[in-house]
Design a binder for these strands. Structure first.
Lengths: 227, 227
DNA sequence: GTCTATAAACAGATAGAC
DNA sequence: GTCTATCTGTTTATAGAC
């Protein structure tokens, strides 16, 4: 209780904490209610900060959206991390290894969408940017979409014997992702139709198992088509 | 130019036209910008009506959203029409026929998402309801999601020899839909990654072709798994 | 039924005290 | 850096003329 007393010329240590709290609150609320559906007052209240601090730290509401996008990119890159970088010089030795890596990625994708508590808001935020693109989408595309997709294309090509950047490969990877992400996007419809109360670990396992079987079938079909 | 002179006790013939124009404008604007991102003034201007007419016809902005949802249900049921009703008494004779019907449905799904000019707004509207469910989602779920999914489950069961309402069947159909719908959801990301300026007839054909191959592969895998 | 004027609440941005 | 008070514009809903 002596917040005003601190070393001069030095930024308050609480500044970064406030900044961070605002970004987290914005990410959650923008994800849940959308950008237009969320007021700056709401964000400030959730972050236990005052309204003025948004203008001070981010210049305005739009700046907060950009900061949230940057946070998403950092978070995903931290999680996906080494899975995204191409092992220099060497592709996976066998097509079976590549296929196993794709299936592992599918598994991770499903559990990220479900297990991680903050994943829901992140995915929702990204979906909203896709339906109403702003500058924030540019950052998310460059930092998340493109690297993930490119890496999967490399693996897909190794698994099927195709070319990494061919049209068929790129489209196939989109379909591979789509069949999984749809469970997050259409979550309310899935819950009703399946009679589930939630998508927890048990449900995620069922989804992942089936998705991996599908991926295996898709790869086998592609391999057969172009031997 | 004598709008006030008409048979007494009778509603103006233009009333339904105004109503209809408001619903169409709302559907487009809610789809493009979201519910919160759209003002009633904007809707009224697009429909060439006045702001007051929204309260008069629909009770308020929320009522307009419900009316838009009802319009979507009617439209889809008109298009999907006979494809949705189960042929009384008889399932498709062979599994090959069932598979062909599923592939035809995939084909229709892709071209609906792309060719139809109004489809974009309809899909966008539904996606927004999924991410922020309101009473409008209840109507869309009951009128569109559930009947379409149930019908596909029947076909899927016929094609694979499985049970229509089994968990695996229901999940498989969701994945089947997801791999296609993702091209609408992640449209901006797809366009950038593919280097496409638009998803027109040519691009849709490529997507549909690949999606149908995937469906065939998925069905084959399921058949092999449970002979 | 249509349209205008207005009310009451709320938005984001900002200036200035501390 | 934090926080409050306030400015300016916009929102939905409504009352009432035509």
């Amino acid at each position: 209780m002596d917040k005003t007393q601190r070393t001069a010329q030095q930024a308050a240590p609480a500044a970064d904490a406030t900044r961070q709290a605002l970004v987290m609150a914005a990410l959650q609320l923008f994800g849940r209610q959308g950008f237009d559906g969320t007021s700056t007052r709401e964000i400030a209240a959730a972050a236990k900060a005052n309204i003025g601090s948004i203008a001070y730290h981010f210049g305005g509401k739009a700046g907060l959206r950009l900061a949230a996008a940057d946070y998403i990119v950092e978070t995903i890159q931290k999680i996906a991390g080494q899975a995204l970088v191409t092992p220099a010089g060497s592709s996976p030795a066998t097509s079976a290894q590549a296929e196993a890596q794709i299936e592992a990625a599918v598994e991770r994708m499903v559990s990220f969408m479900v297990a991680r508590p903050e994943a829901g808001e992140i995915v929702q935020f990204m979906l909203r940017e896709l339906s109403t693109p702003t500058e924030a989408l540019d950052r998310i595309y460059g930092g998340v979409f493109e690297p993930v997709h490119k890496r999967l294309c490399q693996l897909w090509a190794s698994a099927t014997g195709g070319t990494p950047e061919s049209e068929v490969t790129r489209l196939s990877v989109f379909m591979c992702i789509g069949q999984v992400i749809y469970f997050r996007i259409a979550r309310p419809a899935v819950l009703r139709r399946m009679g589930w109360a939630d998508i927890g670990a048990a449900e995620a396992a069922k989804i992942a198992g089936l998705a991996k079987e599908n991926v295996a079938a898709m790869i086998a079909a592609r391999k057969a088509g172009k031997p």
